[in-house]
């Protein structure tokens, strides 16, 4: 660790923890104060022919990419070694799956970006925030693909470098040199992703944390009492000091 330059420490230790803090606190803040703007902000009403291809391609792709990253970053090489998977088998397997997932994702996001820039209706409802987010997201994906392609032969084994850095980061035992020695495109990919994570909580990407799993086991018809729920002041709402409107004094609370 002693050989690390200040820049290395800033980029691969300070920045990541800083981004982590923004990511967590940002989401806590956003969900506590600003539920009203948390939405997928669908633009399907304007245009659905392209969206019907682009959006599922992109989303299913990005979900696959996410799990791919988890596998590559979290599973130590000695585990795969232990069950007899050689580095080259792993490399080509991961490469094949990765390239399919990223092609689907990239294809999807390209359709979405094309739609956003060519359809007049969609264009007019794309705020600056969305454009920045789209740019960063697109760049992260692009750099990830480039890094992989530049490493076709597997000369850089990220599971001996980047992945260990990643795990050490989470065990609060960070090691900047592992990242500092990674190839340029891997470094750029990670940096771009860090910037994306930093704006995440403030962008429409928050919708990724609202997957409605609760739908799977709840009754279809929901009732809420005016008394119990709605009138509770909620964070982000204007506070009201208006007293109750008097009515006949009967209790009408339900279980």
């Amino acid at each position: 660790m002693s050989d690390d330059t200040t820049l290395d420490i800033l980029l691969w230790i300070v920045l990541p923890y800083f981004v982590l803090a923004i990511f967590i606190l940002g989401h806590v803040w956003r969900f506590r104060t600003d539920q009203y703007t948390v939405t997928s902000r669908s633009s399907q009403l304007y245009e659905s022919k392209l969206l019907r291809f682009g959006s599922p391609l992109f989303h299913y792709g990005i979900i696959a990419v996410f799990f791919g990253h988890l596998m590559g970053l979290l599973i130590p090489q000695r585990w795969t070694d232990a069950i007899g998977i050689t580095e080259s088998m792993y490399h080509w397997g991961a490469f094949a799956m990765g390239i399919v997932a990223s092609a689907v994702t990239a294809g999807g996001i390209m359709i979405l970006a094309w739609r956003r820039t060519t359809n007049d209706r969609v264009k007019t409802v794309t705020p600056v925030g969305d454009k920045i987010m789209f740019g960063l997201l697109g760049l992260s994906i692009l750099l990830g693909i480039v890094a992989t392609l530049f490493n076709l032969e597997g000369s850089y084994n990220y599971r001996e470098g980047l992945s260990i850095w990643f795990r050490n980061f989470w065990t609060l035992n960070p090691d900047a040199s592992l990242m500092a020695s990674a190839p340029l495109f891997f470094q750029l990919h990670v940096l771009m992703a860090l910037v994306l994570f930093a704006i995440w909580p403030f962008s429409r990407l928050v919708h990724a944390f609202t997957i409605p799993f609760g739908y799977l086991n709840r009754p279809y018809i929901l009732y809420r009492s005016r008394d119990d729920t709605e009138r509770k002041p909620r964070p982000g709402w204007a506070k009201s000091d208006i007293p109750e409107v008097p009515g006949p004094a009967t209790s009408r609370r339900r279980k």
Binding site: R231, S240, I242, G247, R252
Partner: peptide, 15 residues
């Protein structure tokens, strides 16, 4: 008319 036993008000909060 609505009963607002625990309600703060009937339209200001807007719920």
């Amino acid at each position: 008319r609505g009963h607002g036993e625990s309600a703060h008000n009937l339209e200001g909060v807007g719920t």
